[in-house]
Structures are given as structure tokens and as C-alpha cells.
């Protein structure tokens, strides 16, 4: 009952892939990839910063999608996925903000600037912190899940609005443009591109691995809780 053997096997495979992938990524990032000409070694943080941003956005996107699905289908499992995904999203957006600051300090001579991307990420972080707090303060029941789903929908609609309004606020764009699919002169050297894509793939595996791990934890916690309840009833 407790362990579903098939998903357990998938989890093990992902874990192994992740271990090898992480070793490879470290090698790629610190030894294989060439040093960037104008920024120097600091640029290497890019290989962690951008994939973290991808994972954070993926996490919030999954959270919003499963929240809508939960409100329509009322399946408790959708709610669990939304919750766990938001958690991982908050973790990785924290990493994005911190690695960004570490990079910005030597390059921009400042930890922080109110650039549209930075500000949007920061507000996004607040929104999903609020989401997690809301979940903690409403308890485990179905009502709390509904509240959280409603908030997740409003929050995800808020993200493009925040970005737009800050762009209108004034031209404070400092953040580098996307190097992929950007202008012609903004491409990456082939070695860098390979390192980046490899790191991105490993981060995506990490996301799915963490999702599976947390979902299993939540499931186990639920089974444990219902067992406890049964025991308490029997004792009475």
C-alpha cells in the first residue's frame, strides 16, 4: 500500500540520472565551459540562475494549472500536486533571486535594481509565499484547498499584469535579454550553449524528482493521519 512499486522504480531511475547529471553539470560549468570575455568567472552562475528560473516558472505554472483542474474536478490529488509544485517554485525562485544578486553585485555594482524582470520575480516570490502561508493557516480540509486554488488563479493572472505595469513605469531595463532566441548578436558560444542546455535538463529532472519525492511524502503523511484517527477511534 505504502509504496507503489512502479512509481518507486521511476523515482529511483530519476535519482540515479540526477546524481550523474549533477556531477556532469558541475564538471561542465566549472571546467569545460570557457570563461566569458567581459564578465569573467562570475558569468558561470548563469548556468544555475537561468535553469532555476525555468524550474520556478514551471512550478508556478503547474500549480496554477492543477488549481484550475482541482476546482473543476474536485480531485484531491490535483490539489496535492498544486501545493507541492508551488513549494518547489518558491524554493527555486529564492535561488534565482539570490544567484541573481551575487551576479549583479560585481557586474552592476549593486545587489538590486527595480528592473521589470527582477521586480516581477520578487513579487512572484511574495505571491507564492502568501499561497503557502494561506495553506498553513487554513488546515488540511477541502475548504483550505479551495481557497488556495482560488488564490493561485488570481496570483498567476497577476504575474503578466505586474510585468506590464512595471514596463510602463519607466525604462529601467538592466537585465540581460534572453540569450536564446534573442537578437542575432546575443547567441552563446557552442560550448556554453551545450553546458546551459545540459544544466537545464538536469534542473528539469530535479524538478520532477522533487515532485515525486514530496508527493510520496504527502501521501504517506495522509495515510499516517488516517491511521492515527482510526486508532484514536478504536481506543475510545
Amino acid at each position: 500500500m505504502l509504496t507503489d512499486s512502479k512509481s518507486q522504480r521511476v523515482e529511483n531511475v530519476l535519482g540515479l540520472l540526477l546524481f550523474l547529471g549533477m556531477l556532469m553539470t558541475l564538471y561542465n560549468v566549472f571546467i569545460y565551459a570557457p570563461t566569458e570575455k567581459s564578465m569573467g568567472d562570475v558569468q558561470r552562475i548563469f548556468y544555475f540562475h537561468v535553469p532555476s528560473a525555468f524550474v520556478a516558472f514551471l512550478g508556478f505554472l503547474v500549480c496554477a494549472g492543477y488549481s484550475v483542474a482541482f476546482l473543476i474536478k474536485r480531485n484531491h490529488r490535483y490539489d496535492r500536486v498544486a501545493y507541492v509544485s508551488a513549494e518547489i517554485g518558491v524554493l527555486f525562485s529564492t535561488i534565482v533571486l539570490i544567484t541573481g544578486m551575487i551576479w549583479a553585485r560585481p557586474i552592476w555594482q549593486t545587489w538590486w535594481t527595480w528592473d521589470p524582470r527582477l521586480t516581477t520575480m520578487f513579487i512572484l516570490w511574495f505571491l507564492y509565499i502568501a499561497y503557502l502561508m494561506l495553506r498553513n493557516f487554513t488546515g488540511e480540509d477541502e475548504r483550505g484547498a479551495r481557497f488556495a486554488a482560488v488564490f493561485a488563479i488570481i496570483a498567476s493572472a497577476d504575474v503578466p499584469i505586474v510585468y506590464m505595469s512595471i514596463r510602463w513605469w519607466g525604462d529601467r531595463m538592466m537585465h540581460p535579454k534572453p540569450v536564446l532566441m534573442g537578437d542575432e548578436d546575443s547567441g552563446l558560444a557552442p560550448e556554453m550553449l551545450y553546458t546551459f542546455l545540459f544544466a537545464l535538463a538536469v534542473f528539469l529532472i530535479l524538478y520532477f524528482y522533487l515532485m515525486m519525492l514530496r508527493l510520496r511524502q504527502e501521501r504517506t503523511a495522509e495515510i499516517l493521519n488516517s491511521m492515527k484517527k482510526n486508532l484514536a477511534l478504536n481506543e475510545e
Binding site: L127, A155, D158
Partner: peptide
């Protein structure tokens, strides 16, 4: 306030 403030930031900014 924790729910409300981050969501209304764009309105407030405008």
C-alpha cells in the same frame, strides 16, 4: 494584507 498587497501592486503602481 499578505494576500492582498502583492496582488494589488500593479494597481497601486498605476
Amino acid at each position: 494584507p499578505i494576500l492582498f498587497l502583492p496582488v494589488v501592486i500593479p494597481i497601486l503602481l498605476a
